[in-house]
Every structure is written in structure tokens, then in C-alpha cells.
Amino acid sequence: MKIAIFASGTGTNYQAIAAAVAAGQLPQVELALVLSDRPQAPVLAKAAADHVPTVFVDPKAYGSKMAFEEHVLEILQNHQIDLIVLAGYMRIIGQILLAAYRGKIINIHPSLLPSFPGKNGIADAFAYGVKITGATVHYVDDGIDTGPIIAQETIRITPDDTLATITEKMHQIEHRLYPAVLAELTEKG
């Protein structure tokens, strides 16, 4: 299964997936592309160092979101991508990609959805004072973090935790959970 990882930042979830592929834990996964909407995103350098094809697509270079996504779709088709894996991609997926890849786009979100959707899941959960939070892998649909849940893993928030320590705990479970979900999805075909 050829996957494209969409990322806007450092690429820690990309690294976890790439490490699982390299270790033979995802034998049916081919890292076929890393796509970013930010030209200096560290994930691009990390993927290039791993000899994974990378592409930067500047959303501002297009007259509309539709035109941007049509170009992204063309790139995905040229790479024969089977599954889109969002890993810190900070753009909402629109109708062009949703139509072409319905049921074939997954995301990891740093909260126990449906609680705390959106871009500040960790900070929102911490500010609210919950005692348990976690990570969710879900299919992407028309909403924001509203798609069907595939898997979740929890972490306990202790009185000693800070936003920084919770963020670190979150990364640890994300880096286990995302490759595990990919293994399960690729085994099913």
C-alpha cells in the first residue's frame, strides 16, 4: 500500500512511521510521498534524508482551495497513492481530496475525540482540567476531527504534569499508536 504523509511541521509522527517501515513492522506499507504546505517544514528534510520523495505545495500560489487541491490530487495520482496519512498537517481537507480519497484519509489527533477537537487539543484538555486524555486516530470526513474513530489510547494527567510534560506523553503514545493502526489497516487491505 502506497501512502502519502501530509505534514506541516517537525515530522515526529512521520519518523515513527518511517522507523516502523524500516524495522519491518509495516511490510505492506511503502512510504511513497511526504507532502507539506510549508517550504521549511523540518519533515521535508527528514523524509529526503530517508530517500522518500517530498513535495512542497504552496496553497497561496493558487486562486482557490479547489485549485490547490486539484494540483495535490494530480500529485497523489502520479505517485499512485492508496492512503493519505495526516501527521501534523495543519490544513482542513476539502471536497476535492475527500471525494477522491473517501475512507482513505486518516488523521491522528491529540485528544480523546469527540472531546477537544481542533488545533489545540492538548492545551484545551489541560486547561479544562481533565484527568485523562489521549490520542485518537480517525478517518477524515467533512467536519473537523469528526470522522469515524479507528483507535484511541489514553494517558493520565497527574497533578505534577505541565503542558510540556503532557505534550511529551502525547507524542510517545502517538508514535506507538499511529504505526499500530497502519499495520492493522494494511493487513485488512
Rank of each mutant, 00 (worst) to 15 (best):
Glu174Arg: 05
Ile93His: 01
Gly147Asn: 02
Leu182Gln: 10
Ala180Asp: 14
Met170Trp: 04
Gln95Glu: 15
Asn120Glu: 10
Arg102Glu: 02
Val130Met: 10
Ala164Phe: 08
Leu98Pro: 01
Ile155Ser: 07
Leu177Thr: 01
Gly118Trp: 04
Ala100Leu: 06
Val140Ser: 06
Thr133Arg: 07
Leu177Trp: 13
Asp124Tyr: 08
Phe126Glu: 06
Ile105His: 12
Ile105Leu: 13
Asp145Lys: 00
His109Pro: 13
Lys104Ala: 14
Arg176Gly: 06
Leu113Asp: 05
Asp161Pro: 06
Arg156Phe: 09
Ile157Ser: 01
Met170Glu: 12
His171Trp: 10
Met170Leu: 11
Gly134Ala: 08
Pro148Tyr: 00
Thr162Lys: 04
Asp124Met: 07
His138Val: 12
Asp161His: 05
Ile122Gly: 04
Phe116Lys: 02
Leu98Thr: 03
Ile96Cys: 07
Thr154Met: 14
Gly118Met: 03
Gly118Lys: 09
Leu163Tyr: 11
Ile166Lys: 04
Ile173Phe: 12
Ile106Ala: 06
Lys119Asn: 09
Gly134Pro: 07
Ile106Ser: 09
Gly94Ser: 03
Phe116Asn: 05
His175Ser: 12
Pro110Thr: 03
Ile166Tyr: 02
His109Leu: 05
Leu113Met: 09
His171Pro: 07
Asp160Gln: 15
Lys104Met: 11
Ser115Gln: 14
Tyr128Phe: 15
Ala151Met: 13
Tyr139Asp: 11
Pro110Val: 07
Val137Met: 12
Ile150Cys: 05
Ala99Gly: 15
Leu98Ile: 00
Gly94Arg: 01
Ala123Asp: 07
Thr133Tyr: 07
Thr162Trp: 09
Asp145Asn: 02
Ser111Arg: 10
Ile106Asp: 12
Ala180Ser: 15
Leu163Asp: 02
Thr146Gly: 01
Tyr101Ile: 00
Ser111His: 06
Ile157Asp: 09
Ala123Val: 13
Asn120Asp: 14
Glu168Lys: 15
Ile166Gly: 02
Leu97Gln: 05
Gly121Phe: 09
Ile157Val: 15
Lys131Met: 11
Ile166Leu: 15
Asp161Leu: 10
Ala125Asp: 03
Lys104Leu: 10
Lys131Pro: 09
Lys104Ser: 14
Gly103Arg: 00
Leu112Pro: 08
Thr167Val: 06
Ala135Asp: 11
Thr133Asp: 07
Gly147Ile: 00
Met170Ile: 13
Ile93Cys: 01
Asp142Ile: 00
Met170Phe: 08
Gly143Ser: 05
Ile150Gly: 05
Val137Asp: 11
Ala151Ile: 07
Gln172Pro: 03
Glu153His: 02
Ala151Thr: 02
Pro114Ala: 03
Ile132Thr: 14
Thr154Trp: 04
Ala127Trp: 01
Ala127Gln: 14
Asp161Ile: 12
Ile157Pro: 03
Tyr139Gly: 11
Ser115Val: 07
Ala123Arg: 15
Ile106Leu: 12
Gln172Leu: 13
Pro179Trp: 04
Thr154Ala: 15
Asp142Asn: 06
Ile108His: 10
Thr158Ala: 14
Asn107His: 00
Ala135Thr: 13
His171Ala: 09
Gly147Ala: 09
Leu163Met: 13
Ala164Lys: 14
Val130Lys: 04
Gln95Met: 05
Val130Leu: 12
Ala123Tyr: 07
Asp142Tyr: 01
Pro114Leu: 08
Gln95Ala: 08
Asp145Tyr: 01
Gly147Phe: 00
Gln152Val: 05
Gly121Val: 10
Ile122His: 04
Thr158Tyr: 15
Gln95Phe: 01
Pro117Thr: 07
Glu174Pro: 04
